[in-house]
C-alpha cells in the first residue's frame, strides 16, 4: 500500500520558486495498475520520483507499506529502490559500455552482501528475464545495437531483476514506435495480472492511460480526477499523441 498525504513540492531557482505539487493525497493498493496522466509540467514525473524514493526534497507524508520514506536513511532508501521498486524510463537509461545482460543484472551489484542475489543467481535470473523478453540472443550485445523496443525490454528486464512489488514507468512508450509501444503495454498488463506487480505509469497520453484500471489526472500539481474503469487491453498507440523523444 502506497499512501501520500498533503505532498507539496517546490522547485527553487535563485529568487524564483515553482510549486509543482500542491498537497497531493493519493492511495495506491497492492497489485493496482494506475496511470498518472497530465500535461507536461503538471507534476506527474515529480510525483513518480517521490514515490520511487528518487526525490526526498518534499513536504507531506509518503508511506510505503507503513514506512515513511522521509524517515529512511539514504542506505535504507537505496535498499528500498534496489529490492522493492523497478524503474522504467522513457529514455531507457541503459549503460552503453555494458552488455545487455550486464545492464539487466546491474541492480544485483548493489546488494551489498545483504541477502540479495549472488553473482551466479543474478546471471541466471538475468538470462531468464532476457528469454522472457525474447532477447536471449542479445545477452552479450551492447545496447547501441538494439532497436528502441528492444532497449525498453532490456530496461524492463533490469527493473524486474529483484522481483519488485512496484514498477514505476515514466512515459515508457514515449520513444517507441507503434508496434513496440503496444507490445510494451501488453507486457505491463501481463506483469500486473500474472505476477501481481503494482504498476504506476506516467503518461501525458489519454489513450495509453486507458490501458490501466485506474486513471489519476493531475493538473497544475493537484489531483483533479481519480477514476477506475475496465482497462483497455488492446490499446492502439498509433492513435496516441506522441511527445518528442527526450
Amino acid at each position: 500500500m502506497i499512501r501520500l498525504s498533503g505532498v507539496h513540492k517546490t522547485y527553487r531557482t535563485g529568487q524564483t520558486s515553482l510549486e509543482v505539487l500542491k498537497g497531493v493525497d493519493l492511495e495506491i493498493g497492492d497489485g493496482e495498475f494506475v496511470s498518472i496522466i497530465g500535461r507536461s509540467g503538471s507534476g506527474k514525473t515529480t510525483l513518480l520520483n517521490i514515490i520511487g524514493g528518487l526525490d526526498s526534497d518534499y513536504t507531506g507524508k509518503v508511506e510505503v507499506e507503513g514506512r515513511k520514506l522521509s524517515e529512511m536513511s539514504d542506505r535504507d532508501l537505496s535498499r528500498y529502490r534496489n529490492r522493492h521498486i523497478g524503474f522504467v524510463f522513457q529514455s531507457f537509461h541503459l549503460l552503453g559500455h555494458m552488455t545487455c545482460l550486464e545492464n539487466v543484472i546491474l541492480p544485483s551489484l548493489f546488494n551489498g552482501g545483504d541477502g540479495g542475489l549472488s553473482e551466479k543467481q543474478a546471471q541466471d535470473r538475468g538470462l531468464e528475464l532476457l528469454a522472457q523478453m525474447d532477447l536471449a540472443d542479445k545477452a552479450h550485445a551492447r545496447p547501441i545495437h538494439l532497436s528502441g523496443g528492444q532497449k525498453q525490454r532490456i530496461a524492463i528486464a533490469r527493473a524486474l531483476l529483484h522481483k519488485p512489488e512496484l514498477l514505476i514507468c515514466d512515459e515508457p512508450t514515449g520513444n517507441l514506435d507503434r508496434d513496440s509501444g503496444d507490445a510494451i503495454l501488453k507486457l505491463f498488463s501481463q506483469l500486473n495480472e500474472r505476477d501481481g506487480i503494482t504498476l504506476i505509469i506516467v503518461t501525458h497520453d489519454d489513450i495509453i492511460a486507458e490501458a490501466a484500471a485506474r486513471v489519476v489526472r493531475i493538473v497544475e500539481g493537484n489531483v483533479v480526477e481519480d477514476r477506475r474503469s475496465e482497462p483497455n487491453k488492446n490499446v492502439d498507440t498509433s492513435t496516441s499523441q506522441r511527445e518528442e523523444s527526450a
Binding site: L54, D74, S78, R81, H93, P107, F110, G112
Partner: peptide, 16 residues
Amino acid sequence: QREIGIMRAVGASRAN
C-alpha cells in the same frame, strides 16, 4: 552524471 543517476535509481547508495 546519467550513469551515476542510473546506478542510484537501481539501488546504489551515496556510499556506494
